[in-house]
Simulated assay, not measured.
Amino acid sequence: MTAGDVTDEQSAAEGHDPHALVERRKTRRVRRAAGGAVALALLFAGAATVASARGDGDGAGAGDARVPGASSADAGFARDMAVHHQQAVEMSFIVRDRTDDEDVRRLAYDIANTQANQRGMLLGWLDLWELPKVAPGGEQPMAWMAGTGGHEHGGTETGGTGHGGHGSGGSEAGSGADGVLMAGMASRSELARLNRLDGERAEVFFLQLMTDHHKGGVAMAEACASLCSVPAEQRLARGMVEGQQSELGLMRDMLAEREAEPRP
Score class of each variant (00 low, 15 high):
A12K: 02
G174Y: 10
P231M: 08
A20W: 00
Q140H: 08
A75T: 11
A47P: 06
F44V: 15
K26A: 14
S52F: 08
D178P: 11
A88M: 02
Q140I: 05
A88L: 04
T2W: 05
M81W: 03
L236G: 02
T211K: 00
H151V: 08
L250T: 14
E102S: 07
R25T: 04
T2A: 14
S72M: 13
A39T: 14
L43V: 09
S11P: 00
A75W: 07
D8C: 07
V104C: 03
S168N: 13
E102C: 03
P136T: 14
A3K: 15
A70W: 04
A3Q: 14
D127P: 03
A88F: 01
G36K: 01
A88E: 00
Q245L: 13
D97E: 10
L40M: 13
R201C: 01
H16I: 08
G167M: 02
A37Y: 02
F93H: 08
D80N: 04
L123K: 05
A47E: 05
V22C: 06
A146R: 06
M240D: 01
V230R: 02
E242I: 14
E200G: 04
H213A: 12
P262M: 11
E259N: 10
K26N: 13
L250D: 11
L131F: 10
A48N: 10
D58V: 12
R32K: 11
G184K: 00
V230N: 00
E259H: 04
G199V: 11
G154H: 09
A225S: 03
L122E: 05
A41K: 04
E247H: 13
Q140G: 03
D58W: 13
V95E: 00
M182F: 02
A33G: 07
G239S: 03
D8Q: 13
E203C: 00
S52Y: 00
I94V: 13
L250S: 12
R252L: 08
T27H: 15
E233K: 06
R105I: 10
E130S: 08
T7H: 13
T7P: 08
G55E: 07
D103S: 06
G120I: 05
I111L: 13
R252C: 14
M91R: 08
R119C: 04
G164A: 06
K133Y: 04
A219Y: 04
S175L: 12
D8M: 12
M210L: 15
R29H: 14
G55I: 00
A108Y: 01
S71Y: 10
H213T: 09
A143C: 13
A232Y: 05
A70F: 10
D56S: 14
A34D: 06
L255T: 01
S72E: 11
D212W: 01
A47Q: 09
Q87R: 08
E23T: 15
K133L: 09
A116Y: 05
T114P: 02
D56L: 04
F44P: 04
A37N: 08
D253L: 15
T2E: 12
A45T: 11
